[in-house]
Design a protein around this nucleic acid. Structure first.
Length: 332
DNA sequence: TAGGCCATCTGGTCCT
DNA sequence: AGGACCAGATGGCCTA
């Protein structure tokens, strides 16, 4: 089952460290040195005559008089010098490729950080990040064009389209948790929460009969939604131990607000908004945008994208924010 | 143990 | 020639 990917400790340290590449390079060089120090074999598994004879000529006529002559450029034999050059090229190319992929991953991490549901410890997989990003853009477009609210099932449905069930749970859990009013406005929705017999710790965002992850029918995903159980959320062990915990405790500086122009703008000076002790913290402190962007900015700021402060559990959050509303329901 | 996800290596292709 | 990009192969890690 696809689960939000959590990097191992070593991997996290490796990525965050600046010295990883040197170490990786040196260790890989060592390994490759060992590999390359072995006698050179040709494609048939025979020891290369150049290695045996230690000739330094780079090109040599191939001495097989039996096989028919081949057209095209003659295949150069791998002399020692050519092998060394090839090895050096290969090592450099590998390093470049690693660097390129790290750049790609950095970009992906940036993308993750502006998703409506972000955690550094429990990351969306690459493919799910891209899918969620696509949905996010689409959902925001819908909000802008049709005036649809971001605080409703419709918004969550748009976000969850095509996502795997675990990711849908994650996103829905995040957004529902931070938009409690959404599910307490209507009587029937209260009933759904109270009546849903939900096993253990998972968000019951599943749709019975739905193809298992990864990517079942989109409509099935969103049309069979049930709200999460706040009961499970209120269990501290759920927050601290459960791998499905939607947003682990906030653990770092806020992610930069997304500029409407498509650039990521980062407030250089501490924003008063960031220093406030919110029960949960908006990711988008007010930014100065042009008149034309005002509406878009407003819409964007409405997107329920929050992370819990580090010292706040879901329980304390729920008690603090939802208060008697939830308590009353659970006491039934 | 299978499956998902990942990083890395590698060879091919295209471009400068 | 060398760099960027890509896709396939491989093996490690993690979880159900």
């Amino acid at each position: 089952m696809a689960k939000p990917y959590a990097k191992s400790k070593e991997m996290t340290e490796l990525v965050s460290s600046t010295s990883w590449i040197d170490e990786a390079l040196s260790s890989q060089d060592k390994m490759q040195d060992q590999a390359w120090s072995q006698p050179a074999y040709d494609t048939m598994g025979n020891i290369n005559s150049e290695e045996q004879g230690s000739m330094d000529e780079e090109e040599e006529e191939e001495g097989d008089g039996e096989k028919p002559k081949r057209r095209g450029p003659k295949k150069k034999k791998m002399t020692k010098a050519r092998m060394e050059r090839f090895r050096a090229r290969r090592v450099k190319a590998n390093a470049r490729e690693r660097s390129r992929m790290h750049g790609l991953n950095d970009a992906l991490e940036n993308l993750r950080s502006v998703m409506p549901c972000y955690s550094r410890t429990q990351k969306l997989s690459k493919i799910e990040t891209l899918r969620l990003a696509r949905n996010y853009i689409w959902a925001l477009s819908e909000v802008l064009e049709s005036g649809q609210t971001t605080e409703g099932k419709g918004f969550i449905e748009m976000l969850c389209r095509g996502l795997s069930q675990p990711t849908s749970n994650l996103v829905a859990g995040c957004l529902q948790l931070n938009s409690p009013a959404m599910f307490f406005d209507k009587h029937e929705e209260k009933s759904m929460i109270c009546e849903s017999a939900i096993p253990s710790h998972t968000f019951n965002y599943q749709s019975p009969g739905l193809p298992s992850p990864p990517y079942g029918n989109v409509e099935a995903h969103i049309l069979h939604l049930k709200p999460l159980t706040f009961k499970s959320l209120l269990n501290p062990s759920f927050v601290s131990h459960n791998p499905d915990c939607p947003t682990p405790p906030y653990e770092g500086p806020l992610t930069p607000p997304l500029s409407i122009t498509g650039n990521f703008s980062l407030k250089q000076n501490g924003s008063p908004d960031l220093n406030k002790s919110y029960p949960f913290i908006s990711q988008y402190p007010s930014v100065s945008l042009g008149e034309g962007h005002r509406h878009a900015s407003h819409i964007h700021s409405m997107v329920p994208r929050y992370e819990l402060p580090i010292d706040m559990t879901y329980e304390s959050y729920s008690q603090h924010v939802v208060g008697s509303q939830i308590t009353g329901i659970f006491n039934k």
